[in-house]
Amino acid sequence: MEALWLSMKLAACVAVILLVIGTPVAYWLAYSNWRGKFLLESMVALPLVLPPTVLGFYALIAMGPRGPLGKLWIALFGHGLAFTFSGLILASVLYSFPFAVQPLVASFEGVDRKLLDASAVLGAGGLRTFWRVILPLSLPGVVAAAVLSFAHTLGEFGVVLMVGGNLAGVTRTVSVDIYDHVQSLEYGAANRMALLLLAISFAVLSAVYAVNRRVWTPWAAK
């Protein structure tokens, strides 16, 4: 149960962080006219195609005592980043980035441009337009981004293993725990955890789809 609690905590932290940094990135991707935009788009999508071990490997190198991130962390906090909960958050944020950014970009792009023009001629600057028009009309996308990055982090395995290792209470997440049980042939325990994860993932996703259908359809109707 400790592993489950750790996974939930990790997933929640990652979802919140991703909403905060994913939103400006998504805004820029949705509205910038820069011609080199495709480069950033491909970078954001990279974790979708890379094996988690590749990402985890480079994250581990960067966080190690001789890596740039590791050195910075040691200078700031006096201890390393690899094999810590913070390191796990950082790697998970990278790994789940597209799951937050892509739904946000899609929903920002879905907002009628004429509404943004209308907002501008009514005296609203970019920030006010974002808060009053773009964000409320993109709520389904925001919810999808939060839930997808939460669920995706909850189920990740490769990156965790590479960066976090397997320290009980610190970096041993549900997926690693299940792997552990299987390795030691404890199929019953593995099954209990696996079923629990399956149930939680399903519950979270269906909650989102249900909410999306009921609450946000009325004003989307054209």
Binding site: D112, K114, L115, D117, A118, S119, A120, V121, L122, G123, A124, G125, R132, V133, P136, L137, W219, A220
Partner: peptide, 27 residues
């Protein structure tokens, strides 16, 4: 545009769908 004080009504009207009539007007 926000500083010009020119009013503009589009063919599609572009009323904010998530705001009531009075909220639209007060925008």
């Amino acid at each position: 545009a926000p500083k010009r004080r020119t009013a503009y009504v589009f063919q599609t009207l572009a009323l904010f769908p998530h705001l009531s009539a009075e909220e639209n007007v007060a925008y």
